[in-house]
Design a protein around this nucleic acid. Structure first.
Length: 254
DNA sequence: ATGGCAGGCACCGCCTGA
């Protein structure tokens, strides 16, 4: 089984990339973020015609998440039942016995800002809910755009980023707390190249100069971790014309 | 070099992202 996560930065613009990527990279489950589409505008017909089941929840302009799956998706949950939120940032479903939570963690804008406080409150509630999900579903994958670079090696220039949003101690502590539930960062289970990132700024030749961050993650429960045989970042779609600023991260399971 | 790019929405600039 292959499970991938990808922040597509507008599914309206990126649907051709998603379809092309799925054709070239057979994937059983693809979790996407930042669809930026209300549910009535979701490209259900195109994805179903290509043989996929989908679960989605969206809104206009911002946010929006979806799961695209070869097999049917059961027990779909939209948003965190423990957190009242108008923003559509979570969708979860069970596929072939694996619980997949697709999350678009708030950006946070700047440490100390109102949006940062929202990010912290959101992550507090997310932790509590994921802890319950982990108890309920032994095979659990919590994937998505976390908007947190776990360690300095996940940042192109740690000195320049020190204390900034995405790398602040408060955010890293939140990610650590999630891992302490009993989850493992799939990417770090394996040997990886230095300066491996999943996002690059559109500005300043970010991708060309590899000035990026690793902020898109697949966190696996112990039972799922045992089955995980590989985890890679696919930089290829970032080179396509009019790309998303994020690129897919893929985990393979026995 | 403290800017820049991209998407959406509503206009011809502003907000947000990371």
């Amino acid at each position: 089984m292959k499970l991938a996560t990808w922040n597509v930065n507008s599914l309206n613009v990126r649907l051709p990339h998603v379809m092309k990527w799925l054709e070239e990279n057979p994937t059983d489950v693809l979790a996407i973020q930042e669809t930026k589409l209300t549910d009535d505008k979701f490209p259900l017909a195109e994805l179903e015609a290509a043989g996929y089941h989908v679960a989605y929840t969206g809104q206009k302009t911002y946010n929006g998440v979806a799961i695209i799956s070869r097999l049917p998706i059961h027990d779909i949950v939209k948003n965190n039942p423990k957190f009242e939120d108008a923003q559509q940032r979570i969708i979860a479903g069970t596929i072939d016995g694996v619980r997949v939570v697709c999350a678009y963690v708030p950006n946070g804008q700047a440490v100390g800002s109102e949006k940062f406080e929202y990010k912290m409150a959101w992550l507090n509630a997310f932790h509590d809910w994921i802890k319950e999900q982990a108890a309920q579903y032994p095979q659990l994958a919590v994937v998505g755009d976390y908007n947190i670079a776990p360690e300095d090696r996940d940042v192109h220039d740690p000195a320049a980023w020190e204390g900034m949003v995405h790398v602040s101690p408060e955010e890293r502590a939140q990610l650590k707390r999630l891992l302490e539930i009993g989850l493992t960062d799939a990417f770090r289970m394996f040997e990886q190249a230095d300066k491996s990132f999943s996002w690059w700024d559109y500005r300043s030749l970010g991708f060309r100069l590899n000035k990026g961050l690793r902020i898109d993650h697949l966190l696996l429960s112990d039972a799922l971790k045992q089955r995980c045989t590989a985890c890679i970042i696919d930089r290829v779609p970032r080179k396509w014309e009019q790309p998303s600023d994020h690129t897919p991260v893929i985990a393979t399971f026995a």
